[in-house]
Amino acid sequence: MHPLQDVQKPGVEGTKTIQVRVNGQIYKREVPIRMLLVDFLREELGLTGTHVGCSVEGRCGACTIVLNGNNVKSCLLLAVQADGADILTVEGLGEPDNLHPIQEGFWEKHGLQCGYCTPGMMMSVYNLLKVNPHPSVAEIREALVGNICRCTGYEHIIEAVQYAADRIAAMPKEERDKLFSY
């Protein structure tokens, strides 16, 4: 498409108050209607672990979060759409001293270099392992189509996912369920 097309002239800015649960904490904020969910998370809530890489169409997936149980791209939602939603971002996955097995997998297997795609990538892995605890390599690759990594060549990411899957499979069911409560 033409990069710098003639565009509509701006009109009046509306706002709306929304309430969202993010990583277990409830936030109530008045936001401009046009504000993208990713900007709400990053700039209103200060959760800067969710990144922006493609600006437009969501192809890069760096802004992936889990919204009401599904991994979605937070740059393709308005914040107002998340009113009443339950959201998981990378900040809710695990703390540096208490990492989620997915994070451990990425650490152990060197599944990240610059780390920019990693939060979004792990959100997609979360969604994958929640529904498919023992994915094949092909299934892992397909599940990550929506998350571009420019550094790793994906090889170590796949090993990271396998590592996490094995770790999780070895846990008692209750613990496993706790890991996937979103």
Binding site: V7, V12, G14, K16, I33, S55
Partner: peptide
């Protein structure tokens, strides 16, 4: 790349 102002939702 951000939407133009939206007045009502």
């Amino acid at each position: 790349m951000y939407p133009a102002p939206i007045s009502e939702y």
